[in-house]
Design a protein around this nucleic acid. Sequence first.
DNA 1: TTGTGTTTTATTGCCTCC
DNA 2: GGAGGCAATAAAACACAA
Length: 302
Amino acid sequence: MDSGRNMISSAVPLRAAGEGGEHVFLFGGGGGGGFLRGAPVVEAGAADCRRKRPFQLTAHEELQLQLELGDDELGGFDYELHGGQQERTKRRLTAEQVRELELSFEEEKRKLEPERKSELARRLGIAPRQVAVWFQNRRARWKTKQLEQDFDRLRAAHDELLAGRDALLADNNRLRSQVITLSEKLQAKESSALEPEEQPVALQAGAYAPFKQDQLCTETATGGATPAVGYTGGASDSPESYLAGARSPPSSSEDDCGGGDGDGDGCAFFLPDPDALLAAAAAEEDGAQLNNWAWLWSEQQY
DNA sequence: TTGTGTTTTATTGCCTCC
DNA sequence: GGAGGCAATAAAACACAA
């Protein structure tokens, strides 16, 4: 058991005439842990002291106690005269003592071995108990600081994720409207160019219907490249290879929405450049091929 | 000087480990 | 069961504005 716990204790500075003559009045620190928490200070302190050691000692008793516990166990109090009575005052450590303790705290990874404690106490001229208490309080401060830093880091990461998410959503909306416009234009072009009986199956079936939002993805969050939409049919004759000026196709190893755009964001869906697509449609040189893509597109994505 | 907020030093009971 | 760590807390010491 820590000897400090059996030491004289009082929650308030006490000055009362006791039996047996001249008394030393002792300041306890805080207290109030456990069941004493929330209890009136004086009552709690006094009750606790009755259970343990008396909080008032004669000078002789004080000396006896020092011998009994070892002088250094009594902690770092100075004695001052107040109104003719001797009082203990809490003693602050000097800057040099604190510096040594801080060094030790860093070197020993915040733990304090008993031998080290004794050695430090001897060197600094303070009680081993004081060294232990200092380390304990220092650990508490360190922990608080760590918690604050962790909180800051988490908040920064959270803010960053939110910003990325907002950018993606905006990008997604922009792409969606782009695809819708493109689909409508293409459909209008095809309708005007072909007789109804000649219209490709895919167009008749409405394969160019507007796309759902979750079928689209973007790259802007990572690469900032112009977003592109495409299909994952895996055919060698991809739309991009057919349409001049279209974007390069994804690598074949990235299939099944596993990051076909090469940036690892899980996107496997590409749009050719809208202008190139429209140019191809306008040319009508290979309407059947275009229809094939439209069909593949619809098969893959719907 | 004084009131107020913060930091430092210290104690308390409880808990875990050996 | 003792040693030591921890959270909660008290109170002195300190800093600083009004």
